[in-house]
Design a protein around this nucleic acid. Sequence first.
DNA 1: AAGTGGTCTAGACCACTGC
DNA 2: CAGTGGTCTAGACCACTTT
Lengths: 230, 230
Amino acid sequence: MPATTWQDIHDEFLRRVRTREWAPGARIPGELELAEEFGCARATVGRALTRMADDGMLDRRRRAGTRVAESPVRRTTLAIPLIRQEVEDSGAAYRYVLLERQVGPAPAADAVRLGLSPGQPRLHLRALHLADDRPHVYEDRVINPAAVPRIVETDLAAISANEWLVKNAWYSDGTLAFLAETADGPAAEALGIAQGAAVFVLERRTRAGKEPVTAVRLVYPPGYRMITGL
Amino acid sequence: MPATTWQDIHDEFLRRVRTREWAPGARIPGELELAEEFGCARATVGRALTRMADDGMLDRRRRAGTRVAESPVRRTTLAIPLIRQEVEDSGAAYRYVLLERQVGPAPAADAVRLGLSPGQPRLHLRALHLADDRPHVYEDRVINPAAVPRIVETDLAAISANEWLVKNAWYSDGTLAFLAETADGPAAEALGIAQGAAVFVLERRTRAGKEPVTAVRLVYPPGYRMITGL
DNA sequence: AAGTGGTCTAGACCACTGC
DNA sequence: CAGTGGTCTAGACCACTTT
């Protein structure tokens, strides 16, 4: 292995940006010059620079060169929690309870959430994920059976909807949102907290092509923090 | 340009994972075989595969080959909001008001937040960011002047602490957390909402080497959603 | 021991865009 | 038009880890 890998170079560039040796907005040397400085091929510094640009720390434009972003902290990678894993990683035993299952024509609210026309069939689930038998997350989910017909014949008390979907459904894209809300009656009851308490909510929607698949709300009790690096 | 770029190949791999043509846990062909399939160099499919692995969709190990992750949605890229930009992008005029500025020995709470010993000097700020003169975010920040001495002589009514720090301070690493809370008195008053309302809070801490630089809490009023792709 | 991914190199051509 | 980044190629060697 060469003495300097692209990661070493990346770390050095990161240091230069963070220490402001390369100041926000400033233009930095071109790839060829940097390659000469580090005694490596152009592609190697290029890889390091590309990574920095992906992370939002550099702005690169052909002909114009590479500049440090005005605000060199713009993007971070967020690990989406897998509930079972999140619980087991904390050393607790994972358990899942299906609280309610409803099949039938979608009420207006569910139709909007999922992106269906009102009256189309939908599957509505309410469930609770537990860590050592203490409530960990409350789940409220709507599923479009037109996208995943087999789910209506599945015993969702034995396997969580999420795990079934990961194994059996496909999707093309989706959105993810985080927000704060006051706990409504059902969520408060399931989590054993006061109604009106501030809860952290993660909303996820997935589609397969144009067809909506599922919309889920995960409600975390007060005190929950979603943490990432910077 | 060749007919297929590494991005095309990446998109095709993404499709195969999402449609479960490559099922969770399954081993996929090696780089050489894939390069042959697409009629390109090994490095080209390698780049596409590396990207997928970075996104948590594939697990790659030498000798063992490449497998689809058990849960192929694990990481996403989150754009950290820059308040001024967030406001201006929404078409509103940005304004910033410094509500309070305190210099002095750190009370226990501030010391813990920032990672100082109690009694060391600290700068405490409370501020409000407005969009078209409506409250947008409430900011509560502690700064360690030992890390950025010049900030105590800076007029933080004229420039927000964040913008000053981006331009003038350096950092080595930090953490970022999201949580839900009920609005306390000062936050509720500043945002013009009811005390006890559920607010979305973003907490950020940065350090320069071992020295803490700043700890900030950004409090968003009810209704705020932080959105990302999937 | 051997197969797989991880990385580097040297050269090439192209795409974009500021001068 | 010329300089810069973006990408591809073909080959090479190395690192890891499973068999």
